[in-house]
């Protein structure tokens, strides 16, 4: 053991930014958990292996309630990697660490936080999360455009907003978007729109050959789709709890 420790090999520490799903629970927790169970029942494995951050900004709760909620989520196989927007008094060593998204959280003094943030912004890994020190209420919704075909086995996960693909999405490929999905080619794989709780999201494609489509957790497999819309230019939207498909001109 001591032999291992004395070897002069430096430990590597790197700053990196990752994408995670942020869950925003609402009070009372019992009702919110019931709705979460409902979502999980409809799209099994949705949270499986996905990094999840709990956003408790603006919630009037104490440490015991927060601990209770984290435990409740744990029994549902939702593992929380961090907590956002929590007062330091809410957190303890037995709870996931605080995450700040580069912005000062409620009862942090702003000046304490800004100094290291400015110094670190030169590092490329952290720069992205420090880009907006204050939340801008009027900021445009983010979107990404993919100009290449999405190949079988590739998974595109963009919970922030809309995804536009100029090309086709292959059988066995997957697009998960927080907003709408636009495919200017053939959609053969899976498309899941509005996954972060946006029933207004839609899916558009020049040719529908999809294996699975989903909006806000409601899904339809290829077998359940109207056969006469296969191969057509369509849009897909949610009406209540029903997925509707309509031809586009």
């Amino acid at each position: 053991m001591t032999d291992m420790l004395t070897k002069p090999r430096p430990i590597r520490l790197k700053g990196r930014s990752f994408l995670a799903l942020a869950l925003s629970p609402e009070l009372p927790f019992e009702d919110w958990l019931a709705r979460l169970d409902d979502l999980a029942a409809r799209s099994a494995g949705f949270f499986l292996r996905r990094p999840v951050v709990l956003d408790v900004e603006g919630l009037d709760i104490d440490k015991t309630e927060l601990r209770g909620l984290v435990d409740q989520l744990k029994t549902r196989n939702v593992r929380i990697m961090g907590i956002e927007g929590a007062r330091p008094s809410l957190l303890g060593s037995d709870l996931p660490p605080a995450m700040s998204d580069g912005r000062p959280a409620s009862d942090f003094p702003a000046s304490d936080f800004e100094a290291p943030a400015a110094g670190e912004s030169a590092k490329p890994g952290i720069a992205a999360s420090n880009a907006s020190p204050e939340p801008l209420p009027s900021a445009a919704k983010p979107s990404i455009i993919i100009t290449e075909p999405v190949r079988s086995g590739q998974s595109l996960f963009f919970p922030e907003g809309d995804v536009t693909v100029v090309g086709s999405v292959a059988s066995g490929a997957e697009i998960v978007a927080g907003g709408s999905i636009h495919v200017y080619g053939t959609l053969r794989g899976r498309a899941m729109a509005g996954t972060t709780g946006n029933p207004g999201a839609r899916i558009f494609c020049s040719r529908l050959e999809a294996e699975l489509i989903a909006i806000d957790g409601f899904y339809k497999t290829a077998e359940d789709m109207e056969p006469d819309l296969r191969g057509k230019t369509v849009q897909i939207w949610l009406e209540g709890e029903t997925i509707r498909t309509g031809a586009l001109a």
Binding site: E148, R151, S152, G153, Q154, A170, S171, G172
Partner: peptide, 12 residues
């Protein structure tokens, strides 16, 4: 064809 599509993704 689907396996080839997967390989093209890996090539890229």
């Amino acid at each position: 064809v689907r396996d080839s599509d997967r390989i093209i993704g890996l090539l890229d």
